[in-house]
Amino acid sequence: MVLASPDDPAPTPVGLVRLLIDDESGRLFCVPRTGGRPGVDLPTITVTDGDTATALNRLTRAVFGQACATTLMGFVRNTVPEGVEYEWPSPVAHFTVHRPASSGALPALDGVWLHPVSDADQLSERHWWPLVAVDHDAATAMCDDLLIAWGLWLDDVDRDRDRIVGSATDALVLGLDSPGLRELAGLEIGVDWGDIDNLVLQAAVELHLPRPTNELALRAELERHARQVLRGEEAPGALTAWAHRRVGHEGPRGLLALVRLDDEYAMLEEVPGYWEIPDRPEQVSALDEVVRSAAAAIVAGETDLSRFMPDRWRDIPRPGASADA
Rank of each mutant, 00 (worst) to 15 (best):
D170Y: 14
A93L: 08
A220Q: 07
D144S: 06
F95E: 08
P252L: 01
V271C: 09
P89Y: 02
L106C: 09
M73P: 02
P43S: 10
E183N: 00
E233C: 05
L287E: 01
A62T: 15
I196W: 00
S102C: 09
D288Y: 13
G190S: 14
L305Q: 03
H249L: 10
R318Y: 12
R224C: 04
M267N: 10
D22P: 14
R99D: 02
D144A: 07
E264Q: 07
R159Y: 01
V290G: 01
E276S: 10
Q66G: 11
S90Y: 05
V247I: 09
D137K: 02
D22E: 14
E221H: 04
P252Q: 01
L201I: 07
E282F: 13
D197F: 00
A10Q: 05
P81M: 04
W113V: 05
H94F: 14
T12M: 15
H225Y: 02
S178F: 07
I189L: 13
V47Q: 12
V2I: 15
V97Q: 02
P252E: 02
P212F: 12
F29E: 12
W153H: 00
Y274L: 15
N78C: 14
A185N: 06
Q228A: 13
L258Q: 07
V284H: 13
V134R: 09
G186L: 09
D324W: 11
G248Y: 06
D137E: 04
R318T: 15
N78G: 14
G104K: 01
L16M: 08
W129M: 01
L123P: 10
R61G: 15
S306G: 03
A105C: 13
A55I: 03
A139M: 03
E87D: 12
G320Q: 02
P278I: 02
D23F: 13
D144K: 06
A295I: 11
A296G: 11
R163I: 03
L114V: 05
V229S: 05
A108Q: 08
F308M: 11
I21P: 13
L28V: 12
T46G: 12
D324F: 14
T54Q: 13
A139F: 03
V247C: 05
A203G: 00
L19E: 03
D49H: 13
T96Q: 01
Q202R: 06
L184T: 00
R27C: 08
V291M: 00
M142Y: 05
